[in-house]
Design a protein around this nucleic acid. Structure first.
Length: 742
DNA sequence: AGCCCTAAGTTTTTT
DNA sequence: ACTTAGGGCT
């Protein structure tokens, strides 16, 4: 293996194969190259077997790319047995083999977020809880957070025993887990959680993988959760050849469970850690790096690191103050046209980045007007479309009839006369007999309280599913799908639908899905339905057309790991970037995460960086004057060039946001102090009981755990309407919310 | 059972 | 401003 083309730090990272290694890889420092070379070095020079290597990434894209590059580098050795996968695929693989040892069915299905919502709603119903107070989405994120931290329902309950709301959520969590198990289903977080559980419960399994994976590498280590951290730690225990690669400055997923401490404290967790810093950047000009370095240096919680480049100087960072978002979009479109002509650039050289997806609309309009082709990333995912989800639900039930959630989704789609009342009766019976819905359906004739007409419909449905289950055994997946669409009447229903255009789109999408299946049959080694469903569950996008010469539009989050010659960072305004919630949360760590996001945005640019902001912006139907982002203030003056008279028209003054900050901070402090003084618990545990909280009446100042301070406007039944100072008017149910009287 | 209207909520996203 | 979900009405 020739290592001469690597710089000294990269080379060190490659050659230090034994023991724990932490590679702090700055943006654009050739991290993927180091990882792939390292794997090649292990195999070619150290005689390590492919099967002894485990390389983990976060996205399928990164995994595929790494595999391809490794295979390009090592042509004469067999790399098939090497695991280069995402955390989730890795776990599925382990679980499919051994989850039965912790009492689960090995042919589990994987629930996505909308299945989770459905399931949580069912749980709420069963526990007689209101989905207004316990919004499914928020419950799910709490449960998800618990799983990320490896807290079982019991542990979570114990931890929050004094917190009425979270205690209730613990109950939901417990029931939710129970239902998942009964449906033979796991959610995404379970994939990690249950693998850790399996390792803990079954030493034999752990031992098997532990001795197999002698060399472990983890990419994007700054994005790992506690659960993922634990998983890796368990696996690496024996050989200690654990190499993690990451950049604490690019940790932008704290809100979905990533724990930045994992990378910051790696040196404490393992003995004799060898640290390598990759600081030479091969991507951007020095000017861009100076700006990035300066901005990120405002963060306290970080490992010191400074990017440098051999590409001295370069273009200054251009700042454009637009009047509003339309003007901003116009500027972007004009600049792209101009630069394309002037520098003979391709459209694909440009990227427009923004903090929130809502910002894309005006940019799209402007690009359309200027006839600039673009690709927009994000938005509704292919697999999340209704028709695709319906079809997948059919496939899931065919694969796993215990899946009640999927069964309920399709039992009357297309309509076949099995109404809500009938389903309710079936559900009652199922929970009485502790059986799945499907087994009640099979045995429907013994159910005399259901009309004979409904019974006929049900037995027709059972026949249909039975036939499809037989077909599954003989036909390939694509054929099975055609049969499903055909025999279920799904396509017929769409074809006779009056709203033509929409139905046509749906039929198109279903056809597209069939070609996904065909592609799967060609590429996958295992071609069964179970593997297909897993693949689909673990993939977000069907395919992407990156080939085209188009401008890229995406959020800064999505842009991580990518690079473009010319980048537009848009909406550089307080309350948008940093986003208002990071400002009002009063947590420095939230602002620091926004700043890291800014760092990620800046470092996407190779040659030219434009930053834009507006004087006023219309967002969510309201127009507000803008204040320049604090991150603009943090840019070094010598790196920037203002394209228009920004200074005079808009205050870049630090004072602006400092005042804003101080105001909110002081305010919150007062709230906290006074709320300690007098606390009224307005919560009861049981819906059937009537609450009595005479202390709270219209006019009372109260503090709500989620919405902050407000004044009670109206009380009706158990509903309390409160005008919150920061959130506006909201009605909450006093039975489930702890209100502090101020 | 379907349709229409109102209300509420809008950061980021992978798997 | 806009979408989307849920409730209520026909």
């Amino acid at each position: 293996m020739n290592l001469d083309t690597l710089n000294p730090a990269q080379r060190e990272a490659v050659e230090k194969t034994e023991g724990p290694v932490l590679i702090l890889a700055g943006a654009g420092s050739g991290k993927t190259r180091v990882l792939t070379t390292r794997i090649a070095h292990l195999m070619e020079d150290k005689n390590v077997q492919a099967a002894n290597i485990l390389a983990i990434t976060f996205t399928n894209k990164a995994a595929t790319e790494m595999r391809e590059r490794v295979e390009e580098t090592i042509t004469e050795l067999d790399t098939k047995d090497m695991w280069i996968t995402t955390f989730h695929s890795c776990c599925v693989r382990i679980l499919r083999k051994g989850i039965n040892r912790i009492g689960y069915n090995r042919s589990f299905v994987i629930y996505d977020s909308s299945d989770q919502v459905t399931l949580v709603k069912d749980c709420l119903k069963e526990l007689n809880l209101s989905d207004k107070v316990f919004e499914p989405k928020s419950v799910i994120s709490t449960i998800s957070g618990a799983k990320d931290k490896l807290l079982s329902p019991a542990q979570f309950k114990q931890l929050y025993r004094d917190d009425v709301r979270n205690s209730k959520i613990a109950d939901i969590y417990a029931l939710y887990q129970d239902r998942l198990k009964r449906n033979s289903a796991l959610d995404f977080d379970d994939l990690i959680y249950k693998t850790v559980e399996l390792f803990k419960e079954d030493p034999e399994t752990l031992e098997f993988y532990r001795s197999r994976f002698k060399y472990i590498m983890v990419d994007e280590y700054q994005d790992t959760s506690k659960a993922q951290y634990e998983l890796i730690k368990m696996l690496a225990r024996q050989h200690q050849n654990i190499c993690v690669v990451g950049d604490d400055d690019q940790s932008i997923y704290g809100w979905r469970g990533a724990d930045i401490r994992n990378i910051l404290e790696f040196e404490k967790d393992y003995d004799d850690v060898h640290v390598v810093k990759l600081e030479q950047n091969y991507r951007s000009t020095q000017i861009i790096l100076d700006a990035a370095n300066t901005v990120i240096s405002n963060n306290i919680e970080r490992k010191r690191k400074k990017l440098w480049s051999e590409k001295k100087d370069g273009e200054l960072i251009k700042i454009q103050l637009a009047t509003d978002e339309l003007d901003e979009a116009e500027f972007i479109a004009d600049t792209i046209s101009r630069l394309k002509r002037r520098d003979r650039r391709k459209f694909s050289d440009f990227a427009v980045l923004y903090r929130a997806n809502a910002q894309a609309r005006p940019v799209e309009d402007a690009l359309n007007r200027s006839q600039i082709p673009y690709n927009i990333y994000g938005g509704t995912k292919f697999y999340e479309r209704k028709e695709i989800k319906d079809l997948i639900a059919y496939l899931r039930v065919i694969q796993n009839p215990q899946d009640d959630i999927s069964l309920k989704r399709i039992i009357n789609v297309p309509r076949r006369g099995i109404g809500l009342r009938t389903i309710e009766k079936v559900e009652d019976r199922a929970s009485l007999k502790q059986e799945s819905l499907y087994s009640v359906l099979i045995d429907i004739e013994s159910n005399s309280d259901i009309s004979s007409k409904a019974r006929k419909s049900i037995s027709d449905f059972v026949d249909l599913m039975g036939t499809l289950r037989t077909i599954k055994e003989v036909y390939p997946v694509s054929k099975l799908i055609e049969k499903v669409l055909d025999t279920s009447g799904y396509i017929d229903e769409l074809q006779k639908d009056s709203k033509k255009e929409e139905s046509e789109d749906r039929i198109e999408n279903l056809k597209e899905f069939i070609s996904v299946a065909l592609e799967f049959e060609q590429n996958s080694e295992e071609k069964d339905l179970e593997t297909f469903l897993t693949t689909v569950a673990l993939t977000s996008e069907a395919s992407d057309d990156e080939e085209d010469d188009k401008v890229s539009l995406m959020t800064i989050h999505t842009s991580k790991g990518l690079e473009f010659p010319v980048v537009f960072l848009t909406g550089m305004e307080e309350k948008l970037f940093p986003i208002s919630r990071a400002i009002t949360s009063m947590r420095d760590s939230d602002i620091e995460e926004e700043r890291r996001l800014c760092y990620v945005g800046i470092t996407r640019a190779k040659e030219e960086l434009y930053m834009t902001l507006t004087q006023k912006r219309t967002l969510y139907g309201k127009t507000n004057p803008s204040i320049a982002s604090r991150f603009m203030e943090e840019l070094p003056g010598e790196c920037i060039e203002r394209l228009n008279k920004a200074e005079n028209e808009l205050s870049y003054s630090k004072a602006n946001y400092n005042i804003l900050d101080k105001y909110t901070k002081k305010y919150m402090n007062n709230v906290q102090k006074s709320s300690i003084a007098k606390k009224v618990n307005a919560t009861v545990k049981d819906t059937t009981k009537e609450t009595n909280i005479d202390d709270i009446k219209p006019g009372s100042k109260v503090h709500h755990p989620k919405f902050g301070v407000g004044t009670v406007v109206m009380m009706k039944g158990t509903d309390v309407t409160i005008a919150f100072d920061n959130q506006g008017l909201k009605t909450i149910n006093k039975e489930y919310t702890t209100l502090d009287l101020l």
